[in-house]
Computed example of a mutant assay.
Amino acid sequence: MRAGSVLSVRTPDGDRQTRITLFAGRPLGEPVVAGGPFVMNPCAEIEQAFRDFHAGKFGQAPRAAGLNTR
């Protein structure tokens, strides 16, 4: 088995339902920068994404869009 090919998951109390989203793909072969909800390259793009977001350039999300309030 290759290193990094196993994912172990444990729920907080062992009985609660847990949802997992796993994304996988081919390696990019370049540095990746993550900041908040943004993943880009290089860091300057993350900073620009935050400026654009705060300036309202991403539009508005509907109030109930994907919000799980449970």
Rank of each mutant, 00 (worst) to 15 (best):
M1P: 09
M1S: 11
M1R: 15
R2Y: 10
R2V: 10
A3V: 12
A3F: 02
A3H: 07
G4P: 04
L7N: 03
S8R: 12
V9C: 07
R10A: 15
R10C: 13
R10V: 12
P12D: 09
D13S: 10
D13H: 08
G14F: 02
D15P: 01
D15K: 09
R16D: 06
T18L: 15
T18Y: 02
T18V: 13
R19T: 11
R19M: 08
I20N: 02
I20G: 02
L22G: 06
F23H: 14
F23T: 12
F23N: 15
A24E: 12
R26S: 12
R26F: 08
R26Q: 11
P27H: 07
P27N: 09
G29K: 06
G29E: 06
G29L: 11
V32C: 07
V32D: 05
V33P: 02
V33D: 14
A34M: 08
G36M: 02
G36P: 00
P37F: 04
P37T: 00
P37Q: 04
P37W: 03
P37S: 05
F38M: 00
V39P: 06
V39R: 13
V39I: 06
M40F: 07
M40H: 02
N41H: 14
N41F: 05
P42M: 04
P42N: 03
C43D: 14
C43N: 12
A44I: 05
E45Y: 09
E47A: 09
E47R: 15
E47L: 14
E47S: 08
A49H: 09
R51P: 11
F53T: 01
F53H: 15
H54M: 15
A55L: 05
A55I: 01
G56M: 06
G56Q: 07
K57L: 13
K57I: 06
F58Q: 01
G59F: 00
G59R: 00
A61L: 15
P62D: 09
A64R: 10
A65V: 04
A65Y: 09
G66D: 10
G66P: 03
G66M: 00
L67P: 04
L67A: 07
L67F: 13
N68C: 10
N68L: 11
T69D: 09
R70K: 12
